[in-house]
């Protein structure tokens, strides 16, 4: 079995050393996206996507011609004013691109809805502070139930698509945070299970070659420890363990529960919304293709 996709910096030396891997290359500047994609494609690795956390609003970015054909995960702090963004909408729609916005900013929740309604795929991220859970619930309901065509808003779409009751659904992969799907490499090729761990110097291997295959990875103590961490919530009778929304959260926000007290109601509501969406779809009300 192949290893998960490797998220690595745009470091030619590192990419040359890797062979037959699927890579998600991380760049600091939007201007470097096309070059990074070319770098991977000219190696004997396969390009998953280019990840860029831009520091400017989406509306301020130059959506360059050389982004054509490059899968891009574009993180931005905010969308910017719609009047500035409007000219870019057709281009955003044409690109193979997903926009990442932090859910803890109310204007980002609005932007996610606007982008989706205009056919631009996007994703809410939960790395920062507590979102406005009521507004997020409204956005999630829009994302999953609105019968008018719109682009997917992850992680809601991912969760709804993958949730198979009674089993739980992991959704870290929507933002490269599931080590079963993505491993993170630094310039030296050291391997971590998460970007945050990589930045903190917590690595599981000095080189990806040290991990022979998927079985090797699955049984790796660090990955096992992550599973144990989840069981520990039960061991401690943590509020997450008795949350009705556990199946679509799995304690993802357990560490920030004090600052995110609305998450239980949100994820519980999400389960009901997913049920409703399935009913909707079972009545042959598949959304039609986005227009205009």
């Amino acid at each position: 079995m192949p290893l998960p996709t490797l998220v690595c910096p745009d470091a030619p030396g590192l990419i040359e050393r890797l062979h037959g891997r699927t890579l998600a290359v991380r760049v600091d500047e939007p201007e470097a996206i096309a070059g990074a994609a070319r770098g991977v494609r000219s190696s004997d690795n396969e390009l998953c996507c280019v990840i860029c956390d831009a520091l400017r609003p989406l509306a301020d970015l130059d959506l360059r011609d050389d982004w054509d054909g490059v899968p891009i995960a574009l993180g931005v702090p905010e969308a910017g004013r719609f009047r500035d963004l409007a000219p870019s909408i057709p281009r955003l729609r044409d690109l193979d691109l997903r926009v990442y916005l932090a859910a803890d900013r109310p204007d980002n929740l609005v932007a996610l809805r606007l982008l989706s309604s205009l056919g631009v795929p996007c994703c809410a991220t939960f790395a920062g502070g507590a979102p406005d859970w009521a507004a997020l619930t409204d956005l999630m309901t829009y994302a999953l139930l609105a019968s008018v065509p719109h682009a997917p808003i992850d992680p809601f779409e991912h969760i709804a698509d993958h949730y198979e009751p009674p089993f739980a659904t992991e959704w870290g992969a929507t933002c490269f945070a599931d080590p079963r799907c993505y491993l993170h490499l630094d310039e030296e090729g050291r391997v971590a299970l998460a970007r945050s761990e990589l930045l903190a110097g917590v690595v599981i291997a000095e080189d990806v070659a040290d991990i022979a295959d998927e079985a090797d990875l699955v049984s790796h103590p660090a990955l096992v420890e992550r599973a144990v961490r989840r069981l520990r919530l039960f061991e401690q009778d943590h509020p997450c363990a008795r949350c009705p929304g556990w199946r679509v959260c799995l304690g993802t926000l357990a560490d920030s529960l004090d600052t995110a007290p609305g998450c239980a109601a949100f994820f519980t509501e999400m389960l009901d919304v997913i049920d409703q969406r399935r009913d909707q779809r079972s009545r042959d009300r598949e959304p039609v293709k986005w227009r205009p």
Binding site: P166, R242, P244, W246
Partner: peptide, 15 residues
């Protein structure tokens, strides 16, 4: 009762 129910059914998702 609700806490207990959710805890047990979260612990053993498939029943």
């Amino acid at each position: 009762p609700a806490d207990v129910f959710y805890f047990m059914t979260n612990l053993k998702l498939d029943g």
